[in-house]
Nucleic acid binder design. Structure first.
Lengths: 138, 138
DNA sequence: GTTTGTAGTTAGTAAAAACTAACTATATTT
DNA sequence: AAATATAGTTAGTTTTTACTAACTACAAAC
């Protein structure tokens, strides 16, 4: 158990550091960590409305509204008014906003490359099988 | 490569979610995510002075000083004046401040437990060996 | 069709988080 | 020992982030 925890701790650090490095390149795009979190949540919740986003982030609706207005002005987000309920509007990421996800993909790719460098084909296949088993639900 | 990237993405999500859940329990201790980041950086830099911490966080010294003052008042951090250079002071985490690291340990332990539930002994040993190989430097 | 409820917005405000400029105290260089 | 540099601090200010209360517009329930 102790050994496994240490390995997970190392893995967590590796992933954390790689994502952090990837994020640094993105900070050049003038986004605060809060704003990044908004974009990530919009992606995660799959185009929520303001109310849903506020609930997820545990912030008041006006707070979220003001923050989203800024992200709309900076062209990371846009709104589409719902046809079913015309009071409501769904939030979408623009192409620029989607870069936030590409950032994560980039970090994951870099980790994959470092693994490929360290394992041979058999080892890679075994690792993939075991981790798949670990990640499967239930 | 594609498969490996997906697995890493899943792993990253698992670790991220587990840490997030662990953090929620800690939010009850009245710390903002910024303040948690300060505590994590102090741990990471191994008792830095204000200047070093400001450099790491890419913030001005007065900004960091004011933030640290609050953490000192709340008893998460204390200062020890350096004997070598009496202008300088090193930042340390109090027992309460160290809980932030225990939070990470708790999250890692929970992930370890979920792995133990899904693999048998042989599989576990193989996984540990492969991940150790992956995490080794160079 | 009137009342009640909900999504989003606006206005006003408070607290947190950041900055620059200027200072004190100690160290280092010349 | 005087001049320069560095660590930390203080003061004053701006920006960001958050809140509540009150509003508009639309939807649902009675």
């Amino acid at each position: 158990m102790e050994k496994l925890i240490n390995i997970i701790s190392g893995l967590s650090t590796l992933i954390g550091n790689t994502e952090e490095e990837a994020k640094e390149q993105f900070n050049l795009f003038q986004l605060t960590s809060h704003q990044m979190h908004y974009l990530e949540s919009i992606h995660l919740l799959d185009n929520p409305n303001i109310t849903e986003l506020a609930l997820q982030l545990r912030l008041s609706k006006p707070t979220v509204k003001v923050a989203i207005d800024k992200l709309i002005e900076k062209e990371y987000v846009y709104k589409i008014r719902s046809d079913e309920d015309r009071r409501s509007a769904h939030l979408h990421l623009t192409e620029k906003g989607k870069l936030i996800n590409q950032m994560h993909e980039y970090a994951h790719k870099r980790i994959a490359e470092s693994i490929l460098r360290k394992l041979n084909n058999d080892e890679l296949e075994t690792l993939e099988d075991l981790l798949t088993k670990v990640l499967v639900d239930k």
